[in-house]
């Protein structure tokens, strides 16, 4: 186990995040079971007060999770010198891959889930009947479980003994396993092209839903609301897009941006090309917000409160669109400059 100030800070934040996750999971579940908006009993008012406390704690948890993203990656970065063979984060991850990759993915997924909760909460508080309350409370236990899983992965990562020599990006990605064929396939533009096609499709969708949402307050124009299969489809599309994005970065964009024709490492890209990191973050946030939009409107309670929330939803879509488009523009400009 390696300890330095980054890792210690990370571990402190992580313990706090675990504590917050468990506290809101247990209390969320307890309140969910007893919640009855029609009750006038004092017990119900006490639950309401407790919900305000939960909101405060979740907000805190969200900021903590945001802070933990760079902390985690800095911690990994700080370990490079202590791990024989590691030259970038790939080597560090290889100390106990594939779990380390799951741990890293959770670093991005968890703040997104927190953000979803907070957005749902913001909308819930705009309506007197608090239509999303039960949904909100029931979201907390799975969130808590994910944080527990993440903590276990983190611990197993920090406590695992590095193998005598880890393989790192150059040996993994740059030396073709199947000889020349690999180089040729990896050199294709197919993933980049596919990424742009899908990304433009999603941008188009966002624009479509922006207009749909703006008109949705007139009656009979609500067909997307409460539609669970649309939600699953959209989530799937976004996940596919994201996977294609990673492949595009790996196969073509990394080598181009890094200026090393055979260097495919995404982590090196993030470390060395700041605008690539910026566009990655913006695209990620944009896609997350679009998924959040769908998760909200697919709620069975959403239809009846749409007139009250429509304006907020339009704003959510605008943010989503701006983030995604902004990220795409930054990436495209850089791409045009290097080819």
């Amino acid at each position: 186990m390696i300890l330095n100030s980054y890792i210690i800070t990370y571990l402190v934040c992580s313990s706090l995040s675990l504590f917050i996750g468990l506290a809101v999971a247990f209390n969320g579940f307890r309140i969910w079971r007893k919640w009855d908006i029609t009750s006038h009993a004092d017990a119900q008012y006490r639950l309401e007060k407790e919900v305000y406390l939960i909101i405060t704690i979740v907000s805190l948890g969200f900021f903590l999770r945001i802070l933990m993203v760079p902390l985690w990656f800095w911690s990994l970065y700080s370990m490079i010198i202590s791990i024989p063979g590691a030259m970038c984060l790939v080597g560090v991850h290889n100390v106990n891959a594939p779990y380390s990759y799951v741990a890293s993915a959770l670093k991005l997924i968890l703040p997104a889930l927190y953000a979803y909760w907070l957005i749902l909460n913001l909308l819930d508080r705009k309506v007197a009947t608090q239509p999303f309350m039960k949904q909100k409370l029931m979201f907390l236990p799975p969130l808590g479980i994910l944080i527990v899983i993440e903590t276990i992965l983190d611990i197993s990562f920090f406590f695992s003994t590095p193998p005598r020599q880890v393989s790192c990006c150059t040996s993994l990605f740059d030396i073709p396993r199947e000889g020349v064929v690999q180089i040729v396939t990896e050199a294709t533009w197919i993933w980049v092209v596919l990424f742009y096609v899908l990304a433009f499709f999603v941008v188009g969708e966002i624009i479509y839903f922006l207009f749909f949402q703006k008109r949705s307050t007139s009656p009979g124009k609500e067909r997307w609301f409460g539609n669970k299969s649309a939600m699953f489809m959209q989530t799937l599309v976004i996940i596919v897009l994201f996977v294609v994005y990673i492949l595009a970065l790996h196969t073509k964009i990394s080598p181009l941006f890094l200026g090393l024709p055979f260097h495919h490492c995404i982590f090196c890209l993030g470390q060395e090309v700041w605008d690539a990191l910026l566009s990655f973050s913006m695209i990620f946030i944009g896609l997350c917000l679009f998924v959040v939009y769908f998760w909200v409107i697919s709620s069975s309670k959403y239809r009846e409160v749409n007139p009250l929330l429509s304006e907020k939803m339009v704003r959510l879509l605008k943010w989503s669109g701006c983030m995604l488009a902004g990220g795409l523009i930054i990436m495209s400009i850089h791409l045009l400059l290097v080819i």
């Binding site: 908006i37 309401e48 007197a128």
Partner: peptide
């Protein structure tokens, strides 16, 4: 808040309103 019954203000039933409302 009331123990039972309803309170209306300007055609809105407020007896079940949450605190922030």
């Amino acid at each position: 808040r009331v123990t039972s019954g309803r309170l209306w203000m300007e055609n809105q039933e407020v007896s079940h309103y949450p605190d922030h409302f």
